[in-house]
Design a protein around this nucleic acid. Structure first.
Lengths: 249, 249
DNA sequence: TACTGTCCTGTTGTATACAATCCACGAGCG
DNA sequence: CGCTCGTGGATTGTATACAACAGGACAGTA
């Protein structure tokens, strides 16, 4: 089979290999999301690159990707820090989330995915399931996963990509709270409402539910919360560390 | 005046200096937007870094920022290329724009900026003014500037930042058209309608006008256009080159 | 003639070396 | 005693050197 010039009509795609920079960027995002790299902490390049088993060059290149996302903050001469999202910046974060997730809802409605959004139902079931327990991290993960699934249903690469960053930023905002990371103990009824309206084709209702949910979250994250019952993480649940990049072979 | 430890209550902000990577990234975006770096063209790192008067390291770091934005595409072993947005990917671009600009409209309505959006009126005036002429580039710039201004009125850092990328992507989509870059000759009536509805507080009307405008643009950029009169760029208007970074002194 | 394998050249990817910058500490001085 | 100002150490920012890879040309073979 000739690989010099593909015959017309025969289209084959280049298998997208992941570059080292890709892998490092993924690792860094994961580290921020999991709390392995605490909010506000400066990251020494030699230390991190050493832990990852790579040189400073690819690390710095990967870091610039996160800088573009807003997950890292670069100060000339002082290097990189994990970005913090103080209470006064939380509303803008949720403005962006409303833009993305709201648009997702409209698309889902427009395209009328008739398979009743089984993935979303599963995500909600999972969220309600873990909410019975006391593992704050699992609850938070399930929450964000629900929203990721919601956006995924819109089948929009750009929205999904943006959502990926927004999810991490939401976690950062939680970490940035003065009173520490905590999640709602009970699943907000807005989740079920959102899903019901989505199933019944009531876009306005779904959007309203989403907005209510966000207002609630903003209130909680800005300290204006009407003391909802929360569950804190089981004191320092295994602080995950930075694993070495498996740079293929 | 002691600069060792700032007294409580006296908060002073660090003046945000622009790093070299920042400057290079800006230069690259400008080069893509202006067409100095044509869509699909591979960019030799030694050549570009030479023109910019910097080394490959900061150039590569800056490039990763654009990769994250989607403006550059990196293929392992083959380097970087200016991303292309073929017709089939145009709808998703406008999905994202609808998310951002639609949300901006809702925020503007909610906050009820009462100064009647003079900046937007100016932007529209400017667009209509240059549309009298034959300079396709000026028309395209004025068009995008209108939308940038629209989003700016929402005062959301995240939306504005996202819009900045979307503007360049829109330009890339224009460049990616099989029949070449061209713009509408006459200003779509949806612009005036959008502005009117915004002034009168009719959010739904404004959103509708925006959506109509986008559907129109998507049709044009995907070739499904109902032959609207367009104006092409005055054959190769001064191909701007990459200037050296003024790396301070 | 078409395909396959090998060499060759240029470019990218990574590591390292060097320079510039910033922060902390401590001595000196008002 | 408190502020200012050098100096040292460490870290970042930049440049360069080297290794690895991809693509093209050419010759060999069926």
């Amino acid at each position: 089979m000739p690989h010099s010039s593909p015959r017309p009509g025969v289209s084959v795609f280049r298998v997208p290999r992941a570059s080292t920079v890709d892998l490092i960027a993924i690792e860094l995002r994961q580290a921020i999301f999991s709390g392995a790299l605490p909010v506000g902490s400066p990251l020494g390049e030699v230390e991190i690159s050493g832990q990852l088993g790579v040189s400073r060059s690819p690390l710095r290149e990967a870091a610039q990707r996160l800088v573009q996302e807003g997950l890292l903050t670069a100060t000339p001469g002082r290097g990189l820090r994990v970005s913090s999202i103080p209470p006064e910046l939380v509303p803008d974060l949720y403005t962006a989330r409303l833009a993305v997730e709201g648009q997702a809802i409209r698309i889902i409605h427009r395209d009328g995915d008739t398979q009743k959004h089984s993935e979303l139902h599963e995500a909600l079931d999972h969220l309600q399931s873990v909410s019975q327990g006391e593992d704050a991290r699992k609850i938070g993960d399930a929450d964000l996963d629900f929203h990721r699934t919601l956006v995924a249903l819109a089948h929009s690469p750009r929205l999904s990509r943006a959502m990926e960053t927004l999810i991490i930023e939401t976690r950062i905002a939680s970490y940035s709270m003065p009173q520490g990371y905590a999640v709602r103990r009970s699943v907000s009824p807005t989740y079920a409402a959102l899903l019901e309206h989505l199933d019944s084709g009531n876009t306005q209702g779904a959007l309203k539910a989403l907005e209510d949910q966000f207002n609630d979250a903003v209130d909680r994250l800005t300290g204006r919360a009407t003391h909802v019952d929360t569950v804190e993480p089981s004191l320092q649940a295994d602080q995950p560390t930075l694993g070495p990049i498996e740079v293929l072979e």
